[in-house]
């Protein structure tokens, strides 16, 4: 694997999709209602499809997914955060799918090597974003319990949102413009949901780097252990 800028970008986007796909898959058998079980699994499947295309641009998709160590993953810390309660998952979806939708829309309009995938995936992600927005409105503008849980979830994940707008080498994107559009969109949805944009810092307290530099939060190692266990114990296993 040569570390070209295109490789860096493909890994960053691919790892975001792969890791969030795995997290959403953890809801299987645990979602509050059957429709959500299906919806979250479908979103996970879309993301897995994107991850497969992106990782295959770099090398063998299975080796990259199952045999890399934690520090070699460059996904955002946001997507590796545990599912928490349903509101927590929805807040993570709102933050990420808004970002991914805006980012893919920008890439789809360009000439780069990610344009074909982005042009396709942007249509899929539009539904993810819509799903997250719909639930944010329903929980935030719903019962007192739903409102409080949604508020807490948005606050808790806020510190992971700054990292999304660090430029990724190889992606020709107006990052400041992306950030402004993201803030406007998320702020608008939260306002409609009778919530407000959190005010705390949008980066973590420690500054050794973040997900894009291979620095991850504690739950990520446990997630990887579960995700990679089967392949590492039984190399090449298939069914």
């Amino acid at each position: 694997m040569t570390a070209t800028v295109a490789t860096t970008a493909a890994l960053a986007l691919g790892d975001d999709a792969l890791v969030l796909s795995h997290r959403l898959g953890e809801w299987a058998g645990h979602a509050p209602v059957l429709e959500e079980e299906v919806a979250l699994a479908n979103i996970a499947l879309d993301l897995l499809g994107q991850a497969r295309v992106l990782l295959s641009m770099v090398g063998d998709e299975d080796e990259l997914a199952y045999l890399r160590e934690e520090r070699a993953f460059t996904n955002l810390q946001l997507v590796e955060q545990p599912n928490g309660d349903f509101a927590h998952t929805i807040a993570r979806q709102l933050y990420f799918s808004t970002y991914q939708h805006l980012l893919y829309a920008a890439l789809a309009g360009g000439e780069g090597e990610f344009a074909p995938l982005a042009a396709k995936a942007v249509n899929e992600v539009a539904y993810h974003r819509d799903h997250a927005e719909q639930w944010t409105l329903r929980l935030g503008d719903g019962t007192d319990v739903g409102h409080e849980r949604m508020r807490r979830a948005c606050e808790a994940l806020w510190r992971f949102t700054g990292e999304m707008f660090q430029p990724v080498a190889g992606l020709d994107v107006d990052w400041a413009g992306l950030e402004a559009a993201w803030l406007e969109s998320v702020g608008d949805v939260l306002e409609r949901a009778t919530l407000t944009l959190p005010e705390g810092p949008r980066v973590t307290a420690w500054s050794a780097g973040a997900g894009r530099q291979g620095v991850h939060t504690e739950p990520f190692g446990r997630m990887l252990a579960e995700m990679q266990h089967l392949h590492r114990s039984h190399p090449g296993a298939s069914w």
Binding site: E35, E36, V38, A39, N42, D46, E124, Q134
Partner: peptide, 13 residues
């Protein structure tokens, strides 16, 4: 609309 995602990702319920 009942659900944005149905039996497959390409369908809504």
């Amino acid at each position: 609309l009942l659900s944005r995602f149905s039996s497959t990702a390409c369908k809504a319920l």
